[in-house]
């Protein structure tokens, strides 16, 4: 019986995905119970495979999959866009839906004659987006509370994930442009998918219904 290693992102998205696994007939006992255990296993005799799920930091999921420590993984699209791993992206789980957007203060007006200061947690996404527009930018790389940057005049705009827009509104910011639509994606290691095709396709089939 083949074991399929699955990297799950710790946190809210991972919990949602676990419930999705449960609904699809792939429930793993104990996985959502509080505790420090990181690895969970279950055999599915009828499907002729076993699942070994483990929790990792969301930003690390693509690394585990690209390097083959996990055969498949669930990752938010923003992390895939930022890290650009060499993996297959096999399924849109249609959960954790949000957008990658450019936002600025309500009264912001772009001045093309100066370098645009962009604060973001996603330097690669920001760089690529503005390179596509041919806009000269300076990137201010932050690890959170990105909304603060324009208020303190640390940056002109921010490139960030927008879910409901509440945080933006409360801080007097508005979305100027959408860069990409985001949601949770199922990714697979390219080599693992060659040799565990049937098992991985089975999992995808179940998650899809």
């Amino acid at each position: 019986m083949r074991v399929i290693n699955v990297a799950l992102p710790k946190g809210r998205l991972g919990e949602r995905v676990c419930r999705l696994f449960e609904k699809s007939g792939l429930s793993i006992p104990g996985i959502l119970e509080p505790g420090r255990k990181l690895i969970f296993e279950r055999e599915f005799a009828d499907l002729n495979f076993a699942l070994r799920l483990f929790w990792v930091k969301p930003f690390d999921v693509p690394v585990y999959v690209e390097r083959g420590a996990a055969d498949i993984g669930i990752s938010a699209k923003d992390i895939l866009l930022e890290r650009e791993p060499d993996v297959y992206e096999l399924l849109d789980l249609k959960t954790g839906i949000c957008t990658m957007s450019v936002a600025a203060l309500e009264n912001f007006a772009d001045d093309n004659s100066r370098t645009l200061r962009v604060a973001t947690e996603f330097p690669n996404i920001a760089r690529k987006y503005y390179a596509g527009l041919g806009r000269d930018i300076d990137i201010i790389c932050l690890r959170g509370s990105v909304e603060l940057a324009p208020i303190l005049n640390l940056s002109d705009v921010i490139v960030d994930i927008v879910e409901t827009g509440t945080t933006l509104r409360e801080n007097n910011l508005r979305v100027i442009n959408n860069i990409a639509n985001l949601s949770a994606r199922l990714i697979a290691n390219k080599s693992a998918y060659k040799f565990k095709t049937q098992e991985i396709n089975n999992i995808i089939g179940k998650l899809r219904t």
Binding site: E66, R67, G68, D86, N189, K190, S191, A192, K194, F195
Partner: peptide, 9 residues
């Protein structure tokens, strides 16, 4: 070309 157990082509 891929070999089982080697994560890249």
């Amino acid at each position: 070309g891929f070999i089982d157990g080697v994560p890249e082509s």
